[in-house]
């Protein structure tokens, strides 16, 4: 698809000594279990096709073992694929030679890690400046850039400490500053907030969104947490057993889960907080409204506004324009996961 910053095409990864032969078998319909039991190869990823748009946050979500960490490592080739293409700005990453690959890793993609992966023997400032050091930037520029990005992630004045003197959340801020200092278009975030406790995690998500509003990076974010995925994602990709189960607009996935796996997934979340008014708005029909509501407000705030009165109808505004209406009865229905509504209607 033209315009995609990163396009993954028919990507396969099979772990084992004869992975390329096995790709043909998997394409022929051999399943994961069959492959493991009869051929002693592990199916990591099968037939992945994802387009990631520039300036968007693409969230890849799945449970552990679903292949999400494997997938993100194909983008900068920390893992070699068995078959397929990864196009970054139209260039196939998998065809790059060692020197070009190194350039890609230095100039095009930076990465944030689940376990921070900071250098314990270097100060926070030196860690933040690490990508510049790798590129051979002069000392003065390294100090300046490190200080700038540390300031930006809220760690101004911590430059002389060592990573072990910081809390987990602060260490990950250093990890983000390091990725930002590389000044790349693309940021890969591998379960970047999963090791943090919930309150800190929320802070970090807010920080990321705030940075993103300003910097418009192309971010690939891996998580196993649906709430986090829904909060951050412009484009959501759900992986299961190494295959894409569903991808698209997160609100759309929430309201129209494609299969039971995703229904299970979405059944546990607080829909009122995640769903936006925009997603359940219908064309204007009513003549009289009980008030107006912003399209990006979540349902929770609307329930609070309405005092729980299901008879009310609100007009939906987006940037001053009226784009539809919300009937509180629709809102209540949207709060119930779709699988149950269907059963109720039958």
């Amino acid at each position: 698809m033209p315009g995609a910053k990163i396009a993954i095409r028919n990507l396969y990864k099979i772990f084992g000594p004869r992975d390329r032969e096995m790709v043909a078998r998997v394409k022929g319909g051999t399943g994961k279990r069959d492959l493991l039991e009869n051929h002693a190869h592990v199916l990591g990823l099968q037939d992945i096709n994802v387009d990631m748009q520039p300036g968007e946050i693409t969230v890849i979500m799945g449970l552990s073992g679903s292949g999400k960490s494997t997938l993100i490592r194909h983008l900068n080739r920390l893992i070699e694929p068995s078959a397929g293409e990864v196009l970054v700005d139209g260039q196939d990453v998998l065809k790059l030679g060692p020197a070009e690959l190194q350039k890609l890793r230095r100039k095009t993609m930076s990465m944030v890690f689940q376990k921070f992966a900071l250098l314990p023997h270097r100060t926070v400032a030196q860690n933040a400046a690490m990508p510049l050091f790798v590129q051979g930037a002069p000392e003065g520029m390294r100090v300046r850039e490190a200080e700038k990005w540390l300031q930006r992630v809220g760690l101004g004045g911590y430059g002389d400490r060592y990573p072990s003197q910081l809390s987990g959340g602060m260490q990950q801020r250093v990890g983000i500053a390091r990725a930002l200092a590389a000044n790349t278009d693309i940021m890969l975030m591998d379960e970047a907030f999963s090791a943090l406790d919930p309150l800190i995690r929320t802070d970090m998500q807010d920080l990321l969104l705030e940075l993103q509003r300003e910097l418009h990076k192309t971010i690939v974010f891996i998580t196993h947490d649906l709430d986090e995925a829904l909060k951050l994602a412009d484009h959501l990709v759900i992986l299961n057993d190494g295959a894409v189960v569903q991808q698209g607009d997160p609100q759309h996935i929430l309201l129209n889960p494609a299969d039971p796996y995703i229904e299970d997934f979405v059944s546990d979340i607080n829909r009122a907080r995640v769903l936006r008014v925009r997603s359940i708005a219908t064309p204007v029909q009513a003549a009289r409204f009980d008030g107006e509501v912003e399209a990006d407000a979540n349902l929770e705030s609307l329930i609070a506004t309405s005092d729980g009165d299901t008879a009310r109808i609100y007009r939906v505004r987006d940037n001053g324009e009226i784009i539809g209406q919300v009937d509180m009865k629709d809102l209540v229905k949207a709060l119930v996961p779709s699988v149950r509504t269907e059963k109720g209607e039958k």
Partner: peptide
């Protein structure tokens, strides 16, 4: 040496 740190070094294009 911690494999995560080595991976980070690779990801940022260290020689």
């Amino acid at each position: 040496v911690d494999r995560d740190v080595i991976e980070a070094a690779d990801a940022f294009g260290m020689t």
